[in-house]
Structure formats: structure tokens, C-alpha cells
Computed example of a mutant assay.
Amino acid sequence: MTMDQGPVGRIIFLNGTSSSGKSSLAAALLRVLEPLHFHLAVDAFNAMSGSKELPPDELELALRRMRGGFHRAIAGMAAAGNHLVVDHVLSEPWRLRDCLEVLAPYEVVLVGVRCPLPELERRELARGDRPAGLAAAQYERVHAHGVYDFEVDTGAYGVEECAAQIVAHLATGAAPTAFRTLRAALATG
């Protein structure tokens, strides 16, 4: 059986620390975006393994393979013509490099999801499902690449307003350039 692939899908790529509101923002976007979009979350891929305990070295390798697979699943969904809202944590340089390579054929709108550290710590504590200090550990690293097509602040605005800001940005028709800029910077060292 063959699939009529048609045009590839657009990828709205949300990058922010743990507890920054990416998943809630993605849900808000799915309610207002046209046409139909799908939410692909790195946390959903993390949960696929269950709760099996592994030694630290095996766990690191398993997580790296899973995240590489996640990046390729994003590409596969877009290649099949699906529009996506991706939520990810680019807290390690290799993750960004891999996304830049794997997602090169696709239109990627890179959105920085920011939130002040005290609010992240408050949310993390209230959630109770994340290790204490995870957001703080990721805080500087997640946005270290410094280039976005658009940014939102979930500490200053609710997710519905942030979703509206993203939709308004998309409506301008501005071509996404962040991934292209980052790819060029990586190529020149």
C-alpha cells in the first residue's frame, strides 16, 4: 500500500525548560490552529519505556537513542504531511545539532518558551512529578543557542495568550529563519 504524501507539514517547535508550560501551550495551540496539528512531546516518548531502573551509563545511552528516535519521528510525521506542535527541551547541544540535521527538509518555526526561574521552581514544586532543581539545571542551557523565530513568556502571560501570540506571529507570514541561521552557524564553526 502506498500513501499519497502531498506537501510536507509545518513544525512549530516549542523549546523551554521543564515546567515552562510547553505541554499546556501545545494543547492551547491545538485548539486554535488551522488546519489540524498533532502534538509530539518528548515527555510522551520518555514515558514509553515505563519505569524500569537502569544503571546511569545504560540510562544515558537509552535516553540518547530515544531522543534521536523522537527527532526522526518528528521528521516522519512531517514527511507524511502532518502539521506538528513539538515540545522539547534542547538542554544538550547534540539535541539541537541532531534536530538541525534531521529536520533540515522541513519548515520549522522555532519558538522559545521562557519563564522566570522563581516561577519555574514554584511550578516544579507544585507538580511534584519532577526532580527538584531540574528546571534550574536546564535554565541557562536550554536557550544557550540564542536564536528563535518567536518567543513567549509563560510567566507573564497565560498559555491561551501565548498561543494567541504565536498564531498572530504565524499569520504575519514571516518565513522561519532560526533553524537556517543555526545550521549556518554550525557549518562555519
Rank of each mutant, 00 (worst) to 15 (best):
T2D: 08
Q5T: 14
Q5A: 11
G6D: 05
V8W: 05
V8D: 05
R10S: 09
I12C: 06
L14P: 10
L14T: 09
L14R: 09
N15Q: 05
G16A: 07
G16H: 08
S18D: 04
S18F: 07
R31F: 01
P35T: 06
L40T: 01
V42F: 01
F45R: 02
G50N: 04
K52I: 11
E53L: 09
E53P: 00
L54S: 02
E58A: 14
E58Y: 05
L63P: 00
R64Y: 03
R67H: 14
R67W: 08
G68H: 09
G69A: 04
R72Y: 03
R72H: 12
A73H: 00
G81H: 04
L84A: 01
V86L: 02
H88K: 00
E92S: 11
P93C: 06
P93G: 09
R97L: 08
E101W: 03
E101K: 13
V109K: 01
V109A: 06
V111P: 07
V111T: 05
P118K: 12
L120M: 06
E121D: 07
R122Y: 03
L125I: 07
A126C: 00
R127S: 05
R127G: 05
P131K: 12
G133Y: 08
A137I: 00
Q138I: 02
Y139Q: 03
E140R: 14
V142H: 03
Y148R: 02
V152M: 09
Y157P: 01
E160C: 07
A164C: 07
A164R: 15
A164L: 07
I166P: 10
V167D: 02
A171L: 07
A174P: 02
P176G: 11
F179E: 04
R180A: 15
T181C: 06
T181I: 14
L182E: 13
R183L: 12
R183C: 01
L186A: 15
A187I: 09
G189R: 15
